[in-house]
């Protein structure tokens, strides 16, 4: 089976969740390259570094909300302000254990957020992302 996406970022500080999710994503051949960050700060620094070097940007970013140092909300704010050229080719999927409707509504109001997933991450969630974002459209 051919992997759907070239590069996917996974920003979450929960090692158990990251371990299981990585296992799932690889099993599902969701992408060729999965990069994990413990918090938003590391992720945004990496994105800016790649942008500067002109390397391959991720097509999908999985983002947890609750993290130390820079949480999901702060990451979104930094990302919006960051000088990244082709943001429209990067889809951000927010993941959280929270089922607080206020929080869900708030996160969905961000235009740059593609979708919101209530943990755990399932194969159905991954399929839905693929269906909504066909690989060809993301390529150039």
């Amino acid at each position: 089976m051919i992997s759907n996406y070239k590069k996917v970022y996974f920003i979450d500080d929960d090692p158990i969740f990251v371990f299981i999710s990585r296992k799932l994503i690889l099993e599902q051949k969701f992408c060729e390259d999965l990069v994990v960050f413990e918090n938003g700060k590391l992720a945004i620094e990496d994105l800016l570094d790649i942008e500067n070097k002109g390397e391959q940007l991720p097509e999908i970013i999985f983002l947890d909300l609750t993290m130390p140092v820079m949480n999901g909300w702060e990451f979104l704010a930094s990302y919006q302000a960051a000088p990244i050229t082709s943001k429209n080719k990067i889809k951000i999927i927010v993941m959280s254990s929270s089922i607080n409707p206020l929080e869900i509504d708030l996160i969905k109001s961000y235009p740059i957020v593609e979708d919101y997933i209530v943990k755990p991450l399932t194969p159905a969630d991954l399929n839905k992302i693929i269906n909504n974002n066909p690989i060809n459209e993301l390529k150039d």
Binding site: I20, S97, S98, P120
Partner: peptide
């Protein structure tokens, strides 16, 4: 309540996924 829900759910989610694997 939300915090409790969030934190407990985090673990529950992990436990669920681990047992499935």
């Amino acid at each position: 309540a939300h915090i409790v829900s969030h934190n407990l759910r985090s673990h529950a989610t992990n436990l669920l996924m681990l047992t499935n694997f």
